[in-house]
Design a protein around this nucleic acid. Structure first.
Lengths: 249, 249
DNA sequence: TGTGACTATCTTGCATACAAGACAGAAAGC
DNA sequence: GCTTTCTGTCTTGTATGCAAGATAGTCACA
C-alpha cells in the first residue's frame, strides 16, 4: 500500500510534474493517468490526485471519461486549429503591445536561442521540444504579466500534444529561424513586425501539421486497449530518451 | 437555514453559479465561501464543493487561506493592472485578427447594445454590470473560439471584482459609448481601428479606477470579521429570473 | 481595568470506505 | 464456430470520519 519510497512531493507537484512532462514531450497525448497509480507514485491518497486532475482539467490538459479514467487530452483537428488561433491572438497582441525590450530581456532571449542551437547540435530532441515551446513563454515573461504567462504555458502544453499527434517530421531548424527573426525585430524595437512575424511563425508551424492524418481513430477504444499504464507512467517518472518521440514546435 | 430545496444542481453548477454570481455583481470580492455552507446550499457533500473551489482557484476567481476558508479573490492593485493588461492583449489581438463580421454577429451585437441601453434606462445596475462585461465576451464568441471565450470570461469576472473594489462611481454611459464605437468600427470592417478603440476603452475604464483608494486594508482581518455568511450566500442563492437567464450559447 | 493564557468551537486538509459503472474474459447456448 | 450472457475485477464518484490548525470567547490574575 504505502510503499511511498518516492516523494515528499508537496502540493502542487503532481500538477506541475505532469505539465512539465508534457512540455518536454515525455508524456504522450492519450496517456492514461490512473488515480491509484499516481497516488502510489506520489505517495499520497487518491484525494490529492483527483484535485490535481480537476485542476488540470480546467486547464484543458487532461480529461476524464466517466468511470473509465483520466487521460491526457488528444486534441481534435478542430481543437488544434483553435489552439493555434488562440496563440496567434495572445502572442500577437502581446508583442504588439510591447514597448521596450530591456537589456536583461534581450540577454535572456539571446541565451535561450543559444540553448536552442545547442540542443539542435546535440540532437537532444526532448530538450529541443521543450525549448521550442519555452521560447514563447519567455517572451510572455518579459511582459511581467503572470496571467499571460499562465495562459501561454497551458496553450503551449496543448500545442506540444498537438504536434505529437499531427506532426510527422521535425521542423526544428525552421522554427529556430522563426524565433531568431522575431527576436531580431524585437531587438530593433519593431514590435509591430515582431507580432507579424510571430503570426507567420505560428502559421508555418500549423501548416506543417497533417490535420487529416488522424481523424482520431476511435481513441476511446485505443485508450482502453493499448496502454500498458506502467509504461506510460514510467515515461515521466524517469525520463527515457529513446522511447519517447519528440516533435518540435 | 438548511432549506436545501434548491438543488438537484448537477456537477458544474456550483462553479457556474458562483461565476455568474460574480459576473452579475451579486457576489462581492472577499466573500467567504464556506465548504459546509455551500454543501448545504447545493445539497451535496463537501467533496464536490471542494472540487468546484479548486477549479475556481485555478481560474483565478477564488483563493484559499489555509484552515481559514475559501474567499472570492480581492485583486490587489497590481493584480488589477495585470488583468487589464491581459485583457488589452487578448481583446486587441482578437479584434485585429478578425476578418469579417457576419450578419448574425452584427445582429447579436446590435441587440446587445440595445440591452445595454435598456438596462441604463431602467437603472438596473446589476444587469448593467453583467451586460458591460458580457459585451466583450460576445465579441469573443464571434470568433467561434471557445478557448478565447473562456479566457475572457474569467478575466471579465476578475474585472468585475476589481471594479467592485476600486471603482467608486459607475461610468456606464461612457462604457456604452465605447462599446458602440467598437461596434461601429467592426461593422465598417475596420478591425484595426476596432482593436485600437478596444485598447482605448479598456484604458479608460482602468483610468476610472482609484487604485490607491484601497491598499487592501488588512483584508484577512476584514474577512473574518465583517461577513455574515448567510447574507453573502443568500445573495446568489435566490435566482433572479431576469438577471440570471443570460444564456451561454 | 487591562492583559495574558486557556479552551471550546469551527474551519479546512486528507485519507479511507463504499457504491456504481465499465470492461475483459469465461462460460453457456445456438 | 459464433454469438450472447454472466461474472469478477478494476476504475472512478461521492460521502464521511478524523486530524490539525485557527479563531473567538472566557476566565484568571496582576
Amino acid at each position: 500500500m504505502q510503499d511511498s519510497h518516492t516523494s515528499e512531493t508537496t502540493q502542487k507537484s503532481i500538477e506541475e510534474t505532469i505539465v512539465s512532462g508534457i512540455l518536454s514531450a515525455k508524456i504522450r497525448p492519450g496517456t492514461r493517468l490512473g488515480e491509484n497509480q499516481l497516488a502510489a507514485l506520489f505517495g499520497v491518497s487518491r484525494t490529492r490526485v483527483r484535485e490535481a486532475m480537476m485542476r488540470l482539467e480546467t486547464r484543458g490538459i487532461v480529461h476524464v471519461s466517466p468511470r473509465r479514467g483520466w487521460f491526457v487530452v488528444e486534441p481534435s483537428a478542430e481543437d488544434a486549429i483553435a489552439v493555434y488561433e488562440a496563440r496567434r491572438v495572445v502572442e500577437a497582441g502581446l508583442l504588439r503591445g510591447m514597448r521596450v525590450l530591456t537589456d536583461e530581456g534581450s540577454k535572456a532571449l539571446d541565451a535561450h536561442l543559444a540553448d536552442e542551437r545547442n540542443a539542435m547540435a546535440a540532437g537532444d530532441r526532448q530538450r529541443l521540444t521543450y525549448l521550442m515551446g519555452d521560447f514563447h513563454i519567455r517572451i510572455a515573461e518579459l511582459s511581467g504579466n503572470a496571467i499571460i504567462v499562465d495562459i501561454l504555458r497551458d496553450l503551449t502544453a496543448r500545442t506540444i500534444l498537438i504536434s505529437m499527434l499531427y506532426q510527422s517530421e521535425s521542423h526544428a531548424a525552421q522554427s529556430h529561424e522563426g524565433h531568431c527573426r522575431i527576436f531580431e525585430a524585437m531587438r530593433a524595437g519593431d514590435f509591430v513586425r515582431a507580432a507579424a512575424l510571430s503570426v507567420e511563425h505560428l502559421d508555418e508551424v500549423e501548416m506543417g501539421l497533417d490535420l487529416t492524418a488522424r481523424p482520431d481513430p476511435l481513441s476511446d477504444l485505443r485508450n482502453s486497449l493499448s496502454l500498458p499504464p506502467k509504461t506510460a507512467l514510467s515515461a515521466f517518472q524517469q525520463s527515457d530518451p529513446k522511447t519517447t518521440t519528440s516533435k518540435e514546435q
